[in-house]
C-alpha cells in the first residue's frame, strides 16, 4: 500500500514539477510572475484533445501539437503584452496584472469555443493496461508522466549548465543589462524562454488531463495556485527547486489523502508548505535572489 502511494505521489508530483518548471523559468529569466501560465496549461490540454478527437492523431503527436500551440501562445503573450510593457519600463507588478487579463481572455475563449463542460479523452487514447508487480500497479500514463518529466528536467539542467545558450540565459536571469552589454540578444532569449516555458506548461496540461481524464476551461486555476506554492517552496526561479517543490507537493497531497482523508488534501499540503517557509523563508534552493539592474 505504501509503495503504491509512492508511485501515485511520484506521478502527481512530476506533473506539478513540469507545470512549475515553465512558471519558474519565466520568473527567473523575465522576472515576471506569469499568472497566465495556468491558462496556457489549459490551452495545451484542449489542443491535445482536439488533435485526438478531430484529427484522430495518436497521443504522442497530440503532445507535440500541444507543445507547439501552447508555446506559440506563450510567444504571443510575450510579443503582445510583456514586451511592450518592458519597453516602457513598467514597474514589476504591472506585467503580473496584465497576465491576469490574458488568463481571463484565454479562459473565456476556451469556454466560448468548447463550452464550460468537462470533456474527456476517448477511451484507448493511451494504452490502458498497467504493469502489475508485487501487488503494485502503474499505468502507462503514470510511466509516461514520470519518464517525460525526468527527461525534460535532465535536458534543461544540463542545457543550462553546459551550453552556451544556457550560460547566456543564466546571465540574463541575473542581469539583463549586463547580458546585453556582452552582446547577448536579451529580447530574443525572452522570446525563446516564453515559448519553451509555455510549451512545457501545455505538456503538463495534457499529462494532467490524461491522469485525471478531465479537460475544462478553468482547469488551470487550481494548478496555478499549486504552481505558485511550488516555486515559492523551491526558491523562485530555481529549476531544481521546481522539481523538488513539485514532488514535495505531490507527496504531501497523496499521503494526506491516504492517511488523513481526501477533504484534507489541500489543507495538509499547504499547511506543510507554510511550515517549511517559516523555517526557510527563501525556499529550499533560494538564496537572496535579488535582481540587479
Amino acid at each position: 500500500m505504501f509503495a503504491q502511494q509512492l508511485i501515485n505521489a511520484l506521478s502527481l508530483g512530476s506533473v506539478y514539477a513540469l507545470f512549475a518548471l515553465g512558471f519558474t523559468l519565466i520568473f527567473g529569466v523575465l522576472g515576471v510572475i506569469n499568472l497566465a501560465h495556468g491558462a496556457v496549461f489549459m490551452v495545451g490540454a484542449y489542443a491535445a484533445l482536439q488533435a485526438v478527437v478531430l484529427a484522430e492523431l495518436p497521443i504522442w503527436a497530440a503532445l507535440v501539437i500541444a507543445f507547439i500551440i501552447s508555446g506559440l501562445v506563450g510567444l504571443a503573450i510575450d510579443i503582445l503584452v510583456l514586451s511592450p510593457l518592458r519597453k516602457r519600463d513598467a514597474p514589476h507588478l504591472i506585467p503580473m496584472i496584465a497576465t491576469i487579463g490574458v488568463a481571463i481572455m484565454l479562459n473565456s475563449a476556451a469556454q466560448g469555443l468548447f463550452g464550460a463542460d468537462t470533456l474527456r479523452f476517448p477511451p484507448g487514447v493511451v494504452p490502458d493496461g498497467s504493469i502489475e508487480a508485487g501487488g503494485l500497479h502503474i499505468t502507462a500514463v503514470e510511466i509516461g508522466i514520470i519518464a517525460l518529466t525526468i527527461v525534460i528536467m535532465v535536458v534543461l539542467l544540463l542545457g543550462l549548465r553546459r551550453t552556451s545558450i544556457g550560460k547566456a540565459l543564466r546571465a540574463v536571469a541575473e542581469s539583463p543589462r549586463a547580458a546585453a552589454l556582452l552582446g547577448i540578444d536579451v529580447e530574443g532569449l525572452f522570446r525563446k524562454t516564453s515559448f519553451v516555458a509555455a510549451a512545457l506548461g501545455g505538456v503538463a496540461g495534457v499529462l494532467i488531463s490524461l491522469y485525471a481524464n478531465a479537460v475544462y476551461p478553468l482547469m488551470g486555476q487550481p494548478m496555478l495556485h499549486k504552481g505558485i506554492a511550488v516555486i515559492i517552496l523551491g526558491g523562485m526561479g530555481d529549476i531544481r527547486g521546481a522539481l523538488i517543490g513539485g514532488l514535495f507537493l505531490g507527496f504531501a497531497e497523496v499521503f494526506a489523502v491516504a492517511y488523513i482523508g481526501s477533504t484534507m488534501r489541500d489543507a495538509v499540503a499547504f499547511g506543510l508548505l507554510f511550515l517549511i517557509l517559516l523555517v526557510r523563508p527563501t525556499g529550499l534552493f533560494g538564496k537572496a535572489n535579488e535582481r540587479k539592474a
Partner: peptide, 11 residues
C-alpha cells in the same frame, strides 16, 4: 565595461 562592473555573480 559598465559602472559597477555588471558582474554576473552566480556564474
Amino acid at each position: 565595461v559598465a559602472e559597477g562592473r555588471a558582474m554576473l555573480t552566480k556564474l
